[in-house]
Amino acid sequence: MDEGQRLDVYIANQLDHLSRSFIQKLIEQGNIQINGNRDIVKKYKVIENDEIEVEIPDPELLKVDAENIPIDIIYEDEDVVVVNKPQGMVVHPAPGNYKGTLVNALLYHCKNLSSINGVIRPGIVHRIDKDTSGLLMVAKNDKAHRSLAEQLKEHSINRIYIAMVHGNIKEERGTINAPIGRHPVDRMKMAVVHRNGKNAVTHFRVLERYGEYSLIEAKLETGRTHQIRVHMTYIHHPLVGDPIYGQKKEKFHTNGQMLHAQTIGFIHPTKGEYMEFHADIPDHFSKIIKTIENLYRHK
């Protein structure tokens, strides 16, 4: 036991699927016991031989409403939907954010979605961040969901992103093979960690160089949370506009990281054929590229 460590930090390190804020709420609600005692202060520090019991209450039953929100559907049949998600849209509801998500829109536009991920995430096989734009595949039934999920597990789905990063990358291409897990101090962030980290591999190649910036293509071999953002920061080339992992001062006004899921390819769950889809870089991304081009063209 890491004696002298704060209780919430200790539990978060042991149960890395729980955030520190969630653990603190469990302490407040009396759902964590130390040696049979539920009356614990948040800043309690663990002592050797402490017996810690964590009770996680059942989730509240929630109803997610269908909303008539316009979405860009690239492809749809009885099994799958491929959607081009705009920057700024959350993929699925979460505490404090139950409306305006892609799931709310899909529930309106599609008659059926798979039930494997429950009420909150129907049809959602994989996610991209709120401020990342681009392609997502969605399952309309459980059979399709299982097929697509298995392809993700086997790393056979083709996922290619476009990103603008800080710094002039000298190599034409490269591979980042570094495990990703919860940041050891800031539990809201991910990081390259060798203890309790999960295997993560990103392949990249440089498309264009613009002085202090590089436009890259990144291909995911694995799909960890914030993988491209964390990996590019790890090699000292953070994404332009990244509010979590990027530079504190940016020359350009952005509403988030310059990252776009441009290509997705998979074996169709029923037809057995390989299908691949592409989505052009959105306007907000193109404007940043043009601004950077103009800035360095005159230098």
Rank of each mutant, 00 (worst) to 15 (best):
N37G: 05
N196A: 11
P269G: 06
G241D: 04
A66T: 11
D72L: 01
I52A: 08
H237A: 01
P70G: 03
R297V: 11
G30C: 04
G241R: 02
D242W: 07
N158G: 00
K251M: 03
R297P: 04
S133Q: 14
D65E: 15
M258W: 07
Q227N: 05
N13L: 00
Y245D: 12
D129M: 01
A149I: 00
K248S: 03
E76I: 12
E53W: 02
N84G: 02
V82L: 05
D2M: 15
R38I: 14
Q262L: 06
Y108F: 15
M137L: 15
H260F: 07
M275D: 03
D39Q: 12
G241L: 05
N177T: 05
S114R: 00
G211W: 13
L61C: 13
V90E: 07
S19A: 10
T233D: 10
D39L: 05
L26Y: 04
V119C: 03
N294H: 09
A66M: 13
Q227E: 09
R224V: 07
N97Q: 14
T263I: 15
P243K: 01
T175G: 02
V201K: 04
T254A: 09
N104D: 09
L62N: 06
G211Y: 00
V103A: 06
A149T: 11
R182E: 06
K111F: 06
V81C: 14
T233W: 07
F277G: 07
D16L: 04
A105D: 15
R209Y: 10
F285K: 12
P282L: 11
E60Q: 14
G167L: 00
K143H: 05
A218Y: 09
D2N: 12
G123P: 05
V91M: 02
L135D: 03
V64F: 06
V119I: 14
E276I: 10
M137Q: 09
G174L: 12
E276R: 13
K42L: 13
P243G: 07
Y213G: 06
I157W: 02
V80Y: 03
Q247I: 07
N68V: 08
A94I: 05
E217H: 01
H17Q: 05
H260W: 02
I71N: 12
D8K: 04
A191G: 08
N97T: 08
V240C: 05
R146E: 15
V41L: 09
D72W: 08
V90T: 15
S156H: 01
K143D: 09
R6H: 14
D129Q: 09
H203D: 14
N37W: 02
A66P: 14
H231I: 03
T270P: 00
T225W: 13
A191H: 08
R159W: 05
I47D: 08
V185A: 02
C110E: 11
L7E: 10
I73H: 12
K140D: 09
K251H: 04
H226I: 03
G272W: 11
V230C: 06
H226R: 06
A178R: 06
A163T: 04
P57H: 02
H126R: 08
E221K: 09
R205L: 07
D242T: 08
A94K: 04
L259I: 11
L62M: 10
V64P: 08
R146P: 00
I216A: 12
H236Q: 04
K299G: 08
E55R: 14
I264P: 09
E217G: 03
E28R: 13
P238R: 01
G4H: 10
P269T: 10
L207Q: 13
A178K: 08
S147I: 12
P93Q: 03
